[in-house]
Amino acid sequence: MTISNTYPTAHSTSVSNARLRMLNTLRSGTKAVMTFMAIPSVRHAQIVALCGFDAVIIDCEHGHIGDDSMHNAVSAIAALGVSPLIRIRGTGPDIIKRALDTGAHGLMVPMINTAAEAEAVVRASKFPPQGLRGQGSAFPAIAHGLTTPEYMQSANQTLLTILQIESREGVENVDEIAAVDGVDFLFIGPNDLAQSLLGYTPARGDEPVFLEAIDRIVAAARRHGKWAGRLVNDGVLAKAAFEVFDSVAITGDTKAITNWYTAEVKVARS
């Protein structure tokens, strides 16, 4: 295992903060369970957070989540002792700054294809001297249970920077992406990855090119001392994935609601 970071990150930090449930779970070697949240509502965020997850990924890429709902969800989830993560919609510094100013415990960044893109994300996510992030909000410290000066001292080394590898180009460049200082976690988006590699989605799961790509992503993460995770559809698949991955996201709120109601209505009408 190679860790090339030249400054403390989520993997090597000596900072101890009991509020950071996802980071603490990963650092303890325990398998972490997440889910995606796409529906905007403080009450909905609370309900999802109380289901036993280590982290809830607030989906600002594909979900119906605007800035106001993003802020409200982060505060609601963090208050219940669960880590709020935000999947942002792009890699722009303004998008990254806005998401981090909610107090999110980590960012998930979609469709990272090159090391240069990974470096830009890290640069925008870190305060100087490691990056270019600006300070001006009181909200981030609140979700970490800290004062603003305490947050400023710890944020660079406790933020989880999670990059999604979900394209042919991303797989081809995954070793260089994983080697970037400040990248903590590679996350596989299996549906987009299947579409890129196979021309259809979802994958059946037995296609050699698809399985080889997953192996290559995990190998790169391991080689550079980074965590690896993926999306799965249910708990049975999560248990199987834990043989390989450090963390999984079990589906998302919209699919969970749809699947449960559809199955129960079918039973009721049978």
Rank of each mutant, 00 (worst) to 15 (best):
A115K: 09
L50S: 12
N173R: 05
A99I: 07
P8Q: 07
V236K: 10
F245K: 01
A220D: 10
S69I: 04
V121T: 01
M1V: 14
L231V: 14
I96V: 12
F127G: 00
M108V: 15
A138C: 07
K239V: 06
S41Q: 13
P140C: 03
D101L: 02
V171N: 06
G66S: 11
T30Q: 12
S12L: 03
A268T: 09
E169H: 09
R133L: 01
G225T: 05
A220R: 06
G235M: 05
E61L: 00
T258P: 00
A221D: 10
H44Y: 10
I214L: 14
E264A: 08
A55E: 04
R98Q: 08
D67S: 06
T251F: 14
N24I: 00
S4V: 13
A118S: 07
F53P: 06
E243Q: 09
I39E: 06
H71Y: 13
M152L: 15
V236W: 02
V267E: 06
V42E: 13
A79P: 01
L193D: 10
I188T: 14
V180W: 05
I165T: 08
A10N: 11
R168Y: 06
L163F: 00
S75R: 15
A219G: 07
A220T: 05
V15S: 06
L23F: 02
L80A: 09
E264W: 03
R98Y: 00
S69D: 14
M1C: 08
L186I: 03
C60P: 01
R98G: 00
L186F: 08
Q130R: 10
V209L: 13
